[in-house]
Amino acid sequence: MTLPVVALGLIGFAIVVYALTGGADFGAGVWHLLATGPRAKDQRKAVAQAIGPVWEANHVWILFALILLFTCFPGAFVAIASELNVPITLVLGGIVLRGSAFVFRSYGMLAATGKLWWNAVFGLTSVSTPLCLGIMVGGMSAGGDWASPFAFAVGVLALVIFAFLAAVYLACVTAGELREDFRRRAIAAGILAGVVAVGVNLLAADAAPRVYGNLTDGALRKLLLFGTQALALGTLAALFLRRVAIARFGAIVQVAAILASWGLAMDGTLVLSETFPIEAAASPPEVLRTALAISAGGAALLTPALVYLMRVFRGGASPG
């Protein structure tokens, strides 16, 4: 394995972890917005407690992917930023507004109308940001064309998948009726995700022929694709049977597998209006080596800290 491949793999890893953690935080925001029924207030509270202590640490994964991208593949970073500048700008606006809205509403210093207003901002940006993140992924797969039905469909898929993940996680940290609420939401989002995925597939054949063709090219990719579909069904079954812990495991593996399939289908090339084969777009080897060495050292420091964070908050945080 060459250095650029390792670096790209690390970026991919950061993106997967971001989807599994930060993505779920967005999804939790969606359920905050859509809280309904007699327990709407409790649902909102569960969401705020679950993401409060961790969302800032989760957010760092995207920063990480970004920093590694501009360190290791500066040309590709510039190309992505300039071709996708509209969805990126919307993502950024969403991230800034959402994070601010969350802390503003969390610290109990707001008057009632202010809280209502910032709650609305938090909910809406929790929907718009994953949508735009998905549109970016769609744009990167389709020659930089993000203003297309295909890219929009990928955006919707990202939104629904994040909401699905969040509902599964929330079902695991709640109990009783509240858990049932989130379990039902997880099933609904899971089924919806399947429907949207079929739609994305149909559009991809035309809009992103290269990636579409690659998806089923070769045994490994075929296995990954069918494995993902089997996992999705298994996860839904676990949810029906109320085995939420198994469903959580299934959901995590499934989302990681979806992203891995996409990453492999990109075939080591960024498909923008100008393609970037990774070997050619990489920084000099000593820069890659240093960035990877720092990442290894950093991981050694961070892993115990992350484990500690999770242990402290096992079973949800106390209201902040």
Partner: peptide, 19 residues
Amino acid sequence: MEHGALIGVPFTLEGFAFF
């Protein structure tokens, strides 16, 4: 950013510190 590789190391370190 054509010089991105040269400022990448301090930014990578900063990313870890921030994490």
